[in-house]
């Protein structure tokens, strides 16, 4: 049990998917102008990442890995070169399903999150989390924890940046540094802050 708690802490703080691996930068910069939008996007990413990483694990484990197709009588088949295209298809499918289910079950939630869900297909934090899961050969439980943790880490970073950017509205920044430039430098400072977590030994 303690192992999974460690993995969770590691994925949220020490190996924050945004500040250490730079994944999901585009929606991070695009959706951090308002705090409520950042919260919505963060929640959507946590949810999709938690669902998608184990889903990708299952697809890899039962279809793509070398020898995974032995249940179909094809023990020698190695489809691991198809990982890129299948993972993105799984993510797009899960996204579409979530959108449909949320729209049916809870229209108020859909009104809040609906506009963010299509954006998530091209958010590299989700695909990146799935690729790391594949590279580090996580088990099902580990990939569930990793998916949830990396999504949470991303949400934490975007909410923090949105709050800082709100305060920036009162400051006088040189014209050409406004927007992308200053956001990048603030993210650098945040990354510097998060580096103190790398001293934690788990």
């Amino acid at each position: 049990m303690i192992y999974y708690v460690n993995l969770l802490v590691k994925s949220i703080f020490i190996e924050n998917i945004l500040l250490v691996y730079f994944l999901g930068m585009c929606s991070f910069l695009g959706c951090s102008k308002r705090t409520d939008a950042a919260l919505g996007m963060g929640a959507a990413v946590v949810f999709i990442s938690t669902v998608c990483t184990p889903a990708c694990w299952a697809v890899k484990h039962f279809f793509l890995k070398k020898g995974a197709m032995s249940w179909a009588g094809l023990p020698g088949l190695d489809l691991s070169f198809l990982i890129f295209i299948t993972f993105i298809a799984v993510i797009a499918a899960v996204n579409q399903l979530t959108e449909m289910i949320v729209e049916k079950v809870s229209p108020p939630l859909y009104n809040k999150l609906g506009i963010f869900l299509p954006l998530i297909v091209v958010n590299c934090a989700i695909l990146g989390a799935a690729f790391f899961m594949d590279q580090r050969e996580y088990t099902l439980a580990e990939s569930l924890v990793w998916g949830f943790g990396s999504g949470t880490g991303w949400a934490l970073a975007i909410v923090a940046l949105a709050t800082i950017r709100k305060r920036l509205g009162y400051s006088n920044i040189p014209g050409s540094l406004r927007g992308g430039g200053i956001a990048m430098i603030i993210t650098g400072l945040m990354a510097l802050g998060f580096m103190c977590f790398s001293g934690i030994s788990l």
Partner: peptide
């Protein structure tokens, strides 16, 4: 070589290019 360095360099690069191109975001 660490991640904060990358953010700083890119932030300064954006600043530099936009100063030369005279581009201001949101105007």
């Amino acid at each position: 070589l660490l991640s904060p360095g990358a953010f700083f360099v890119l932030g300064l690069l954006i600043w530099g290019h936009r100063t030369i191109a005279k581009y201001v975001e949101g105007k």
